[in-house]
């Protein structure tokens, strides 16, 4: 099995779905226009458009932010895309019945240089946890997962922030950043100082990390979008790990779950509180 067979299966399935009217459109990846580009997302609306759908190692973008489209929509979903869609359903952003998840077994995507993307090299997910269809692929050689967690220090954070130019691409690429007006764009109150200095970058990145707490699906869209090469994901990743350990929650795995930060329990521990971590 390979990308080619998966691509053929995908095109056949989508052609059938569009022909039968099971869905009004399919969000998938189109052919890339240049070898350095990623595959651009497209919406196939007619049966013949299904032939334009591509599946290869450069299907990098997360497609979940392109939802919702008018009518029932099928979405070509890598495991991370599927988790994002599930979390959007959990957060009541899209109704379950409006979307058909076509889960693509995925061994990880690559960058323009052919090397695995950083997020993909750290990802062990090979199949969408929730899907309506599965386009299977025997992924035999399970890669050793890389641990790029690194140390957590003020120096590292400042070095990363130095590279940031506050273009907010990471926010735009993120499936979870669907606020109508981002706090960083607000004028009253104005959280972001006008100077693109450390204070502004810290406010943005920590604020965004808080908003993504328990919602990040580790798709790496933020760092793939970053032209400046900022490791924007490491702080959110640390939070995601903490939430999994402390509250046993991973975003986008369970379609019946309630969002972790919108829940609470008398049994929660006072982690990091004054006077210790004891339970009240």
């Amino acid at each position: 099995m390979s990308f080619e067979t998966q691509q053929k299966e995908l095109r056949d399935l989508c052609a059938a779905l569009l022909r039968d009217g099971a869905v009004e459109s399919v969000i998938g990846f189109g052919e890339r226009s240049d070898s350095c580009c990623v595959c651009p997302p497209i919406a196939a609306k007619r049966e013949k458009d299904a032939g334009k759908l591509a599946w290869n190692s450069r299907c990098v973008p997360n497609l979940a932010p392109y939802l919702p489209l008018r009518g029932k929509t099928a979405i070509v979903a890598k495991p991370c895309d599927a988790r994002a869609v599930v979390n959007l359903i959990v957060e009541r952003q899209i109704p379950r019945e409006s979307v058909r998840i076509i889960g693509m077994d995925c061994a990880g995507m690559t960058g323009a240089d052919g090397n695995p993307l950083r997020a993909c090299a750290e990802c062990g997910e090979r199949r969408a946890p929730v899907a309506d269809d599965i386009i299977a692929n025997e992924i035999s050689s399970r890669r050793e997962l890389e641990d790029t967690r690194g140390e957590y220090s003020a120096k590292r954070f400042k070095d990363e922030m130095k590279k940031c130019i506050l273009c907010f691409s990471c926010r735009q690429a993120c499936y979870g950043c669907y606020c109508q007006t981002c706090f960083a764009d607000r004028v009253l109150p104005n959280w972001q100082p006008a100077e693109p200095g450390f204070g502004a970058k810290m406010t943005y990145h920590l604020g965004r990390a808080m908003h993504l707490a328990g919602r990040c699906v580790e798709c790496g869209a933020c760092e793939n979008a970053c032209a400046s090469g900022v490791d924007v994901r490491y702080i959110i990743r640390g939070v995601t790990e903490f939430i999994e350990k402390e509250y046993g929650f991973r975003a986008g795995i369970d379609i019946e779950a309630s969002p972790v930060m919108q829940s609470c329990s008398m049994d929660d521990r006072n982690v990091g509180f004054w006077g210790g971590d004891e339970r009240e």
């Binding site: 919406a43 973008p61 932010p65 392109y66 130019i165 273009c167 907010f168 691409s169 032209a227």
Partner: peptide
């Protein structure tokens, strides 16, 4: 359709020159 509106193209472009004023 693919555009996310992130604006990175305008930030790294050698000719994009639109600006706004901010008071701090």
């Amino acid at each position: 359709f693919p555009c996310r509106g992130c604006g990175i193209c305008t930030f790294i472009c050698p000719t994009c020159h639109c600006f706004e004023f901010k008071d701090s």
